[in-house]
């Protein structure tokens, strides 16, 4: 499997995120990465455009797909990658086989080291927000930043 990195986040202890996928509207799907530790930032990944399909599974289900992952420069799969675009995707071919609207579709994968992952086929690039914890306040407040 070949990928292009869309977003990555360098964290010392990989896998401390849980995924929650919400399809809100036909053209809006959001994947929130919840940090297990309250000191970590959270991620809000927003997909828009013409969403043709989505799926969420346990990682072991796609173990064979994820066995050989490299980016398009031929580098080994980088473990800090959280969102990638999948090239030469069988799922993309499957979903778009009867679609003739002339649009360009992309296959995105969101994963952490947690055992669930999500995939989306849509026309637009995702928008990623970081939700930061403010340690100066007694309660947790979030500051949103677009990257």
């Amino acid at each position: 499997m070949k990928i292009d990195q869309i977003a990555k986040y360098q964290f010392l202890n990989a896998g401390l995120y849980l995924q929650e996928t919400t399809k809100i509207r036909p053209d809006r799907l959001v994947i929130v990465l919840h940090a297990i530790s309250s000191e970590r930032v959270r991620f809000w990944i927003q997909f828009s455009g013409h969403i043709l399909g989505s799926r969420s599974d346990y990682l072991y289900v796609r173990e064979k797909d994820f066995e050989y992952i490299e980016d398009n420069a031929g580098q080994d799969f980088l473990y800090e990658t959280m969102i990638a675009e999948c090239k030469e995707s069988a799922y993309l071919r499957e979903v778009t086989q009867n679609v003739q609207d002339g649009k360009q579709y992309h296959h995105f994968i969101v994963w952490t080291d947690e055992d669930r992952y999500s995939e989306v086929v849509t026309t637009n690039q995702p928008t990623i927000f970081i939700i930061k914890v403010n340690p100066k306040k007694h309660y947790v407040s979030y500051h949103w930043r677009r990257i």
């Binding site: 043709l52 399909g53 989505s54 799926r55 969420s56 599974d57």
Partner: peptide, 13 residues
């Protein structure tokens, strides 16, 4: 447990 959730336009997929 939720093993898999797949959504698509084409039910035959």
């Amino acid at each position: 447990p939720i093993y898999a959730v797949h959504e698509h336009d084409d039910i035959f997929q």
